[in-house]
Design a protein around this nucleic acid. Structure first.
Lengths: 152, 152
DNA sequence: TATTGTTATACTCTATAACTATA
DNA sequence: TATAGTTATAGAGTATAACAATA
């Protein structure tokens, strides 16, 4: 994607579209994903696989179905993401004792180590994406987005 | 995508991932795009084609290259979007007198009419997506996102 | 009967490279 | 030599339906 000229920005920013939250979110997210994927590339992770790894390495013991719901992804996509992370030794599918249909996805110790590095990488990316905002504003944005994201 | 149980929300919301702005933005946007596409479906538009139409129907006379940059899309994707809208009679490619390589994309009167209806549809969708926020909070979110989106 | 994980499949989205016409 | 638009194509992302095992 080519760099944007300031003339272009000025001209198109004054359009109605440029004030729509949906549009602004699309743009902000394109930027954020680019930065995140750049920082995660050396760990052979992307935003998606990072999210799965992070939840697997939390103490929440999510099932694949839960991962799909929480990450707004289709269940069939989770299969491929977990397959990849499992093949690389970062997560395992554990049998759920209370429901034998269900797999619980858990991080291995290698997964935990990778996850720690990934969190650092994502922090770097987030700082790049949000460099226009100070700490208080970032908290404000986080709070507003959380309410939108979880109170649809 | 299945509905999310409150138990799941509670359990996974307490993870570190759930506090990352990148993740929250992905979730909020999945929601917003779903609502927008639902409302635009009867006009045979999607979030993407709506954005192109809206810019074409503004007074800014964007080139295809400018549309690509402003919408964070690849130039080759704009071709297909403009092709579709042009075939349906909503926009035309006008020759740019100052640079004959360049097309200026302009809305027709049918395009203007459709755009007006689309703006209403998108407003409905935005109200659904942002129902958790009051007017002042929406302005705040808009402002914060704009700064992130345009000051990467 | 309904649900979890899985597979297969198709459809959309996105990125890349090569081409043409202009600059 | 570089840029705007186009085309072709491949790869990534996403959705749907069907199946086996289990509830």
């Amino acid at each position: 994607m080519a760099a944007e000229t300031s003339a272009l920005r000025h001209r198109l920013r004054s359009t109605d579209l440029a004030t729509e939250i949906e549009f602004l979110m699309a743009r902000a997210r394109a930027l954020g994903t680019t930065h995140a994927n750049e920082q995660l590339a050396s760990l052979k992770l992307k935003a998606r696989s990072y999210a799965v790894l992070a939840l697997a390495c939390s103490q929440s013991r999510p099932s694949q179905r839960e991962l799909a719901e929480f990450l707004s992804l289709d269940a069939s996509q989770i299969v491929a993401l977990v397959d990849d992370l499992e093949r690389r030794g970062y997560v395992v599918r554990e049998a759920d004792v209370s429901d034998r249909r269900s797999n619980v996805i858990v991080g291995t110790s290698e997964g935990m180590a990778l996850c720690q590095r990934a969190v650092s990488a994502v922090t770097v990316a987030e700082n790049k994406s949000l460099k226009a905002l100070d700490e208080a504003e970032r908290d404000q944005l986080r709070d507003l987005l959380a309410r939108v994201a979880f109170e649809g």
